[in-house]
Design a binder for these strands. Structure first.
Lengths: 204, 204
DNA sequence: GCAAAAATACCGTGTAATCGGTATTCCGCG
DNA sequence: CGCGGAATACCGATTACACGGTATTTTTGC
């Protein structure tokens, strides 16, 4: 069965070159192309590709925003981030936003093919140039208190119970929850729980 | 050029079986075997293998301790963790300790070969079961419809959205949720989400 | 020491979740 | 044919959540 792939990349020359390369793989089927974040989201929601190759820097909604939206609305679409940036913050951001892999643009095309096949099998893939530190401080944009709260939340505790456990007011817990949700762009207990598991803030 | 591999695994039967399998790959060269943490560290420091396959549970120094020591003393040795445990805490621990990859022992041997070649190229590798633990049998006590509901729930959808998606009444979704919660003994969205991830009903 | 960030706390509103009970329809299996 | 599991659906009650705004205190960093 062919792997259905969509490609979001704003630079046309780059996009077309990649399409040509992707089409060489007999079991790859290109089901959509996008040049903006908005287009990427639309195509992903419509086509539900197996893998979405997602450039981070795009007009009308960055790859990060697209990833966050699709992680909520189409979690079955495996997202593979493409970027020139290999710094930990970029990688962390995309992985946190729900990407299954990250390949930098200095990689060989073979690298990308490997990444696609790897995420198709359900594994995560980080390209060599992508620093290992990326995985380590995954939850760093949250404060210590916020991590404490989301960890308890992911264990199934309700706000009043969390307040009890931390000896603070339930109102304060609610405020922390809202700050966490705003920071992460997640708006449900389920999404926060998945995030906590992904980030190692709690074990399954 | 051959890939120089060392294997640390305390169960002799398992170790020998793996040696036999590894020797089938023409470009793999086995340069050492260890049955304890201390032996593993010694062999890694002496042989400086390209890849060290490192079981986590071993006497005289767990894989975690070995990884920490070697990450300091022999950072050029790529460590690939082997374990029966697929929980996030174990994985996070080994990756932080310096491992380049994590393969659970329920994986096919091909998985391990892929992991070895991946870390040899400097990339990180996490096996599929590590990201979405497969305990399908645990989910078997739920009906097909219930699995469908809990999967959508774990994706962050609310009951009205689930009802919309399945073209049924929100009241019916609520009934299914209550039946699921009763069957599993879980009583929060967070707990149901964790269950769904563990059971492979949804991916992270 | 002063400004920024973090942690604390409250009000209010509308929606969602949890839990109680009950009931109908449909379908497969002995 | 009847029984039971599964899926469907509703009423009512209480609690929790999500989101809006606001405000104080404490901690941290330059």
């Amino acid at each position: 069965m062919a792997i259905r792939i969509a490609l979001a990349e704003d630079q046309r020359l780059v996009r077309e070159a990649m399409v040509a390369l992707l089409s060489r793989e007999p079991d790859f089927e290109l089901v959509g192309q996008a040049a903006t974040g908005r287009e990427a989201t639309e195509i992903a929601l419509r086509e539900r590709p197996d893998v979405l190759l997602l450039d981070i820097s795009m007009p009308e909604g960055s790859g990060l925003e697209v990833a966050r939206a699709l992680h909520e609305q189409a979690p079955e679409v495996r997202m593979l981030a493409l970027s020139v940036h290999t710094d930990a913050a970029s990688v962390q951001g995309m992985m946190k936003a729900g990407a299954m892999g990250y390949v930098d643009k200095f990689s060989a095309f073979d690298e990308l093919v490997r990444a696609i096949r790897t995420v198709m099998r359900g594994a995560c893939y980080l390209a060599p140039q992508v620093t290992r530190e990326a995985l380590e401080e995954a939850a760093s944009e949250l404060t210590a208190r916020e991590r404490e709260i989301i960890a308890l939340l992911a264990e199934g505790r309700h706000s009043p119970q969390i307040a009890e456990a931390l000896s603070i007011s339930p109102a304060t817990v609610e405020t922390h929850r809202r700050n966490i949700m705003r920071k992460l762009g997640l708006h449900s207990v389920a999404a926060l729980t998945r995030y906590a598991v992904r980030s190692g803030l709690t074990s399954l």
